[in-house]
Simulated assay, not measured.
Amino acid sequence: MKVSKEQSDANRAALVKAASKLFREKGIDGVGVAEISKEAGLTHGALYAHFPSKSALAAEALALGLELANKKLYGKSADEAPDLDAFLDYYLSTRQRDNLGGHCAMAASASEIGRQDEDVSASFTEGYLEMVRAFENHVAQARPELDSSSRGLALVAALIGGVAMARATQKSNPALSKKVLQGMRELVDEAGGLGKK
């Protein structure tokens, strides 16, 4: 039985959404195609009908996760400056730290990307640079004496690493984990002219 174009598109979207969530929860290498297909309510044969490889799916799933994170950063209108204060409150919250399947795809996968292929790396890099642009623009206005490009790159890298470290320590030392998030907020506020006024 032939699947309609609409159903085919829906199946593809379900696979990407399921993979995006599972990759954030368990890592790219920690999830097999059978588990992704099951999460999407499809067979693994359906997965290979849409993607030539798990890596191709990973690149698209990562792009979706990064797109969702950047929507949280930029909001509804790309013409308006992002509310970095609200974004930092969200990004560095304990609630989001504990939301492995729904929070930042970069914090969930940064350590894995170096072991993936070029397409996955390119998807990660594109999402990272999109986030960096918001911080560069703010630094350029708030701290014009600084190199906004290098400062933006470093701030976003620190945020990603900070969330990863907070997650890594949360189970054995929740107080330390929370302190990492608080310290990251203070560091970013000071280094980028960000945060609460």
Rank of each mutant, 00 (worst) to 15 (best):
M1W: 10
K2C: 09
V3L: 11
N11V: 13
R12N: 11
R12A: 12
R12T: 06
R12M: 12
A13Q: 15
A14M: 13
A14D: 13
K17N: 14
K17P: 10
A18F: 06
L22G: 01
R24F: 09
G27M: 14
D29E: 08
V33G: 09
A34D: 04
A34F: 05
E39H: 08
E39M: 09
E39P: 06
E39G: 06
L42E: 00
H44D: 15
Y48S: 07
A49F: 09
H50V: 07
S53N: 01
K54L: 01
E60G: 08
E60D: 14
E60Y: 09
A61L: 04
A61T: 04
L62P: 01
A63K: 02
A63G: 10
A63I: 01
L64N: 09
G65T: 06
N70T: 05
K72A: 12
A81R: 03
P82C: 01
D83H: 04
D83Y: 06
D85L: 12
D85N: 14
A86R: 03
L88P: 04
Y90I: 02
S93T: 03
R97A: 00
R97C: 07
N99Y: 00
G101K: 00
C104L: 05
M106Q: 10
M106K: 00
A107V: 08
A108P: 03
S109F: 07
A110K: 09
E112V: 03
I113G: 02
I113A: 03
G114T: 14
G114E: 11
R115L: 15
R115S: 14
Q116N: 09
D117S: 12
D117W: 09
E118D: 12
E118M: 11
V120F: 08
V120L: 07
S123R: 00
S123P: 03
E126F: 11
G127W: 05
E130D: 13
E130Y: 13
A134F: 04
F135K: 02
F135S: 00
E136R: 15
E136K: 10
H138I: 09
A142M: 02
P144G: 00
E145L: 12
L146V: 09
S148F: 04
L153S: 13
L153D: 09
L153I: 15
L155T: 01
V156F: 04
A157Y: 04
A157S: 09
L159V: 02
G161H: 03
A164G: 11
M165S: 15
A166W: 04
A166N: 02
A166D: 03
R167I: 05
A168E: 11
T169N: 12
K171W: 01
K171L: 00
K171H: 10
K171Q: 05
P174M: 02
L176M: 08
K179E: 11
K179L: 13
M184F: 04
M184A: 07
R185A: 01
V188A: 05
E190V: 12
